[in-house]
């Protein structure tokens, strides 16, 4: 038996919005530690690694580890039937061919449940080694979304150049070119508005804006995003999943291989 109850159900709705355009289907691997999902997009260019920690749920029961094969578009459609303030419970029997979602209104005066068929998925997992990145850039997630959106006007790719002075995002195309420079924040009252660069070595890499724009769908989950880069390894874009009190409930991480010159 697997059962997980999340009082702040809107978090699960946001998690689905952050992956449904990038992935068609994926397995939720449920264990005592929590619910994990790892999947590549259909073109095998980007990788999503997602964790919802068991102690982030108000109730969590997982008698034995199970893998729930899910059509993510279907799950997203069902979660849209939940109100933003609903409590969401996910339930699956061992060896079941279906998963149940229960939505309770805060006053408990409206309870709905939806059963969705599970899929048999032959999933591939990639081993992601622990990496000490040369640069880790933390910035407001809304700022990163805006940069990706704005530079998409100019080209398909963005060059991210991280030095001790700050970060420069550049794009060029037939129209012309554009640059956005962010300096490290000297003094900010609010931590979520800060730009912080932790740099061991300067790095310049090129990435597809199409994929970065997919990643920014996770911005509603977190006020800050971190970009971790080293030469010749995939970029890691991480959004921490925090509840209203700021306690960590997990993360969504996206990995994207750099583009190389033809």
């Amino acid at each position: 038996m697997f059962e997980a109850r999340l009082v702040e159900g809107s978090l699960l709705k946001k998690v689905m919005e952050s992956i449904k355009d990038l992935l068609n289907e994926a397995s939720w691997d449920c264990s005592g530690n929590g619910m994990c999902l790892q999947a590549m997009d259909s073109s095998h260019v980007a990788l999503v690694s997602l964790m919802l920690k068991s102690d982030g749920f108000e109730n969590y029961r997982c008698d034995r580890s199970i893998s729930l094969g899910i059509n993510l578009a279907s799950m997203s459609k069902i979660l849209k039937c939940a109100s933003n303030d609903d409590i969401i419970t996910i339930r699956a029997e061992d060896d079941a061919d279906a998963i149940t979602f229960m939505f309770e209104s805060p006053k408990q005066d409206r309870v709905s449940d939806y059963e969705m068929k599970l899929m048999n998925l032959d999933t591939e997992h990639l081993g992601i080694p622990d990496t000490e990145y040369a640069c880790v850039i933390k910035m407001p997630s809304g700022e990163f979304s805006r940069i990706c959106r704005d530079l998409s006007v100019l080209g398909d790719s963005v060059i991210i150049c991280c030095t001790k002075d700050g970060v420069r995002f550049s794009a060029k195309g037939d129209l012309g070119n554009g640059n956005i420079k962010l300096a490290q924040s000297a003094n900010v009252d609010k931590e979520e508005e800060a730009v912080v660069v932790d740099m061991r070595e300067a790095v310049t890499l090129t990435f597809s804006l199409r994929y970065l724009n997919f990643f920014t769908k996770a911005a509603p989950l977190s006020s800050q995003v971190s970009l971790s880069m080293s030469e010749d390894v995939p970029l890691m874009v991480e959004y921490k999943i925090n509840d209203k009190e700021g306690d960590s409930k997990g993360y969504v991480r996206y990995y994207l291989a750099p583009k190389i010159e033809d």
């Binding site: 073109s43 095998h44 990788l47 010159e261």
Partner: peptide, 14 residues
Amino acid sequence: ESGQQEISTYYARS
């Protein structure tokens, strides 16, 4: 996309 590497070029299947 031109010049775009696959992610599995970097991470081995486990």
